[in-house]
Amino acid sequence: MSKEYEAEGSSDAKKIPRRVEFVKDRTAARVRQEETETVMTVPNLVVREIIAFMILVIVLSLLSLFFNAPLEWEANPQHTPNPAKAPWYFLGLQELLHYFPPIVAGVILPMLVVLALVAIPYFNVNLKQEGMWKQHRPQTLVVALITIGAMCIVLLIFDVYAMLVPTLVMTVLMLIPYFVHSEKGFIGWLGTRPVQWWIMTWFVLIVVVLTAIGTLFRGPEWSWTWPWEHIY
């Protein structure tokens, strides 16, 4: 597809009409009319919302009837438990703290993540959501490999295998459609994934892996401990 269909991102509705139809490569050139079949909000949506809310309350009530919220010993500033763990959503960070100096793990990385998340919509990267290897294949490959390689070296220096392994897994998945050309199946699907999809998925994988390790696999002195060998 040629350049004139490139979409421009802007929220200024005066300059640019609001709704933009993206014409992807695989779609036919004719623009189909947007499917606009609508239904009344009341009751269709509202009833569904109420059902969803009730199911939520049911699930949580059952959970609350059978599992008690933890309440440990009274706080004792004289005695630090080993290991002292933050709430689970910070354990990914705490795990990072184990590898990197506090300033990196505790300040720079989380700040970068929040800033990156805030900035996502303001970079009009690949609004068309094209597959990563659609265009400029060799250049993309070189840039991607240099970036990933540099990151892996940093991770190796700090011995961060918890991040290195997911990174390599993602890299392998990312490279498969480059070498194996297939339009169908899983590989075909991978081939249509845009670059931002790869970055986000990599980030989510890292977050999940680090949080899981911090929550389940860390014992005294933050040493590796299997969940079933907790002391007591």
Binding site: I51, M54, I55, V57, I58, S61, L62
Partner: peptide, 8 residues
């Protein structure tokens, strides 16, 4: 769902 909800 409403009945289960009320029972719970």
């Amino acid at each position: 769902v409403a009945i289960i909800f009320l029972v719970i």
